[in-house]
Every structure is written in structure tokens, then in C-alpha cells.
Amino acid sequence: MIPAQFDYVAPASVEDALAALAEHGDDAKIIAGGQSLLPVLRMRLNAPEWIIDLGRIESLRGVRDDGDSIVIGAMTPHSVVGSDPLVAEHATLITRAVEHLADAQVRHRGTFGGALAHADPAGDLGAPVRALGASFVIQGPGGTRTVSADDFFVDLFETAIGDDEILTEVRVPKHTGWGAHYEKFVRVAHQWPIVAVAATVRVEGGTIAEARIGLTNMGSTPLRAAAVEAALAGQPATEAAVRAAAAHAAEGTHPPSDLNGDADYRRHLATVITRRAVLAAAGA
């Protein structure tokens, strides 16, 4: 319940935070909302010597419009993202995913960037940002680089963010007017998803013109259900057509087996939940 000793700094700018990271290197850990990090420290599964708090850096907070994209600051709390009108309009899928992420208290503290940097394969934000083709702005000693969602997630709890870097913002291409649904399968409400599906579709005259689908907890990183997306394109938004396409949902996935279900059960769930998510997104 009590973390091991550490020293603490709360820099006021990204530059100062980067300098602190550079100075303490491997011994330092960034804290954003602390909602994943603090339990780890409390159970002493990790014991960094320095904690660098991004909480005082105002520039990392908030959502802004940037032409074809909306930009979500890494330190924007889930509760703010969830009620943001820009997100709701142009990236509805994220709004839907945030609604049922963790609980109200955790959503008040946990941040958009922190959740993505933590890269829990059961985290609710990876699948929607992959589905939406978001890109990640990462700042380091050498400057700023942008990484695509496909390259950002490397493995379980591992991302493209280097030890000396900070995720500053996430750029989400606008998907204005797309239907969206996030379907989460849990046994009890306060659980991380056993499997979840993020689906967003553009429907034109009853036909699914385009579909983007992300899968949560079906592998060591969030996945795209590419085969389903391909099978849906140009299909009518009907139960039968969607059912046929969703049957491909588990292709190329490597879900875990644990207390909550075996891998083969998860593969089966993915097909059912994908069908439901797509139909809901399509308003069918």
C-alpha cells in the first residue's frame, strides 16, 4: 500500500520535464494521472528513484481543432475528453470508448496520453485510436517526431516512446459524420474489457462505404480487424452482411488465456461483438 521512497519533481514545461528525464534516465518514471502507475508503485512492482509529474504542464492539456485533425493533449483527463464537443463531433468513437473506461473517479484523474503510453492491451483507448488512424506526437531531446498508430504499439506495455521522450499529443484525423460504437465485454462493470471492439463506419444510402475496426485485448497490442474492414466495404448495412464480415474478426489475432476466458472463447467473442459493434455504429 505504501510505495518505496522516491524523489519528486513537477516541471512547468515539457522542456524542463525532458531535462529531468535526461538527468535521471533509467531511474525516473513519468507520472501523468497516476491511475496505472500508482497501483504499480503501491504494490512495489516497480520502484523508480525519481517521479516526474507532468501535471503542472498546462500546454499538454486540452483538445483543439487543427484542420483535418483534432489534437488531444496527452494530459487531458478522460472525463474532459469524454465530454469534449470536438471529440464528440469528429471522433465519436473515442467519446463512446471513454464513456465506459474505468469509473468516474479514475476518469477524473487518468489521462488520454497516460492510458496510451501505458499500453495495457486491455486498455480501452488503443483500439479506437488505431481504428481512427491517429498519430502520436513524441518529443525528446532531439526534437519532435510523429509516429503512426500502427507503429506506436510495440508490445504488451511497450510503445514507440523512448526512455528519454514524452508523448505530448495525439492527432486524430476527423471522421465527421461517421457512425461509431464501442462494445465492451466484461463480467463486472469495474473490470477492464475481456474483449472489446471499436467500430466506426461511414454509411452512404444504406451501404457501408468504409469501416474502421479496432480490437481490444485480442493480442499483445490493440489490433485492426483488417479482414472485417475489407469484407464490409461496399456491403449493405444489414444483419446478414455484417454477420458474414464479422466472422473474420479473429483472423490474425493472438488473444490471451486467463481467469476471464480462454483464447478460443475470446476469438469467438470477437466475432459476435464485432457484429454488434458494427451494426450499432451503422445505426442498423
Partner: peptide, 8 residues
């Protein structure tokens, strides 16, 4: 509202 066990 926050969980005060999860805030330093």
C-alpha cells in the same frame, strides 16, 4: 471525485 489512494 477522485480515489485518494491513487493520488500523491
Amino acid at each position: 471525485s477522485v480515489k485518494s489512494c491513487n493520488v500523491l
